[in-house]
Design a protein around this nucleic acid. Sequence first.
DNA 1: TATAAAATGTCAAACGTTTAACAAAAATAT
DNA 2: ATATTTTTGTTAAACGTTTGACATTTTATA
Lengths: 326, 326
Amino acid sequence: MATLDDIAKMAGVSATTVSRVINNYGSLSEKTKTKVFAAMKELNYQPNSLARSLKGKKTQLIGVILPGVGNPFFGQMVEEIENQLFNKDFRIILCNAGNDAKKERAYLRMLIANRVDGIIAGSHNLNIEEYQKADLPIISFDRYLSENIPIVSSDNYQGGQLAAQALLASGSKKLQIITGRNRPNSPTNDRLNGFKNIIKQHDLQLDLTEIDFSATPNIKSLKIKELLAKKTIDGIFCTDDLTSLLVMRQAKNLNISIPNDLRLVGYDGTNFIQDYHPELTTIMQPISDIVTMMIDLLLKRIDDPECQLEKNYTLPVKLIAGTSTI
Amino acid sequence: MATLDDIAKMAGVSATTVSRVINNYGSLSEKTKTKVFAAMKELNYQPNSLARSLKGKKTQLIGVILPGVGNPFFGQMVEEIENQLFNKDFRIILCNAGNDAKKERAYLRMLIANRVDGIIAGSHNLNIEEYQKADLPIISFDRYLSENIPIVSSDNYQGGQLAAQALLASGSKKLQIITGRNRPNSPTNDRLNGFKNIIKQHDLQLDLTEIDFSATPNIKSLKIKELLAKKTIDGIFCTDDLTSLLVMRQAKNLNISIPNDLRLVGYDGTNFIQDYHPELTTIMQPISDIVTMMIDLLLKRIDDPECQLEKNYTLPVKLIAGTSTI
DNA sequence: TATAAAATGTCAAACGTTTAACAAAAATAT
DNA sequence: ATATTTTTGTTAAACGTTTGACATTTTATA
């Protein structure tokens, strides 16, 4: 693999000059620039990022820690992050932390060892103390990680409210919430609170079912089936869209008509859902805006590690009306 | 950020000794090991990967170039790649090349500059000559890239055959293929060939509709609607599952019953489809096996760049029977 | 206690780049 | 022709690690 010295020799100039050309610094004649560029092309030269970074340049690498990219929501988010960062000349190291705190810790260590310029973290694991010690720019999606790590999220409380309003407007009176197992500090809590806040102003039945986030779809379906079979509800709010899909499926199996017998509101509103399941009424998180915001903050911190940022940045959500609520 | 020298000072040993501890080389007493480890923990030390790699060690980074992770198929594939590589102590730099050949080239250059140990490439772009010049281990998924880059794929021909057999067995006689725009060397061609191979042994009607791979779901739906509205077909083979979802939706809108009036076979069989759309009969690509194979080959090449590998590795597919074919 | 073996240390070069300081050469202006 | 400016070169240190050569100290063995 060609090195800077090889280029220098080939172009008949000094290594310093080549470096000057690459970094566009100092004064240079067009002629030498041309010579050097020619040699670079000729030898298919790529400056060694490792050496550059070691010498103090940025690595242009961002670590992205998420629960997993198989889920359409995070899939879309990663795609968005990747795209936006590419345009700003950064690359991402993808870390699927899953539900595995140990893995997340290992990844964090690794990212530090690799001297990434910053980290975007949106995992579901709690109590990763390492985030506090990590002395590099970090932005979090929707989770509290440590005192000085800004949290970007969409307005979960508002989302819960919108969901409740949609169900109310559709005339539902016997309401049910289906949500992942509730953890302290989980953003889904806010969704519930927003929902309840609207409901409690009316005199309505409201039940809550928790289904572990990591349960398989089959297991989830089973619980949903039990729930629906009782036929005691006419409105459901699922705190994620995928679970909503399961509800729709089970409802169909049980000959429960949506929206006639049952109304349904989901949460997330990914492109995938909008494209392939437009009948589902759902609360759309503005993924693109969230990512723009996270990247913006992250780059600010990278530019100036001391810069003061807010603790929270909350972006508005939108109701996407489908036919699952009249 | 603590360096090796800091550790040496703190532990009261020489830098060499610390390096020996880290790399577990030379002879060392338990006592010093303990001291050094303690200092490393105390200072939260992470060896600088950049320096190590510069000195000749591997970067433990693998570039992964795919069309995009928003698609469930590639989402699952990335997740699988990430998982398997993590267990072997490698990390991935994720590159969504989309349909953008320019972006793919830029990424390739960047990966080389970053001295990744190897690349897994499964993009849809053609004629990226840079792959030929790239002098590092590369494994391709389902595409021809260059002479000495092994291709791992699932058996597209067999997949086409299975699809055809499923439709035949369901009694369909007026068949339709819906596929992305055909490019030369595209793996979907083999799916078509396998399909046709079975069909031509019978005297049946067969039409083919191409819909550009990158068309939006709405546009695809429109074309599908036109197609179905004619009501001249009773069996459809879609060369990807997402398109199948659109077909199911349009069929429902037109009151065409699946599988009574129309049978449908998709392609890919991701976990997502199996979990959330089990009614769809589809051909499952063994993503996990594909990834295992790719990683296996890649690591072999990394270990021994000269090692001879086959040009093609083809893994069997499976029919997953749903209710979309009786 | 002498001797061998094991553990540690010192030193220095190397990986490929950046960058500062300074000197020399070439081009331009007066 | 001289003075000035621009371009290029030389040299060397630095980034943080690895590794080899060799020397010294400590520990175990006979």
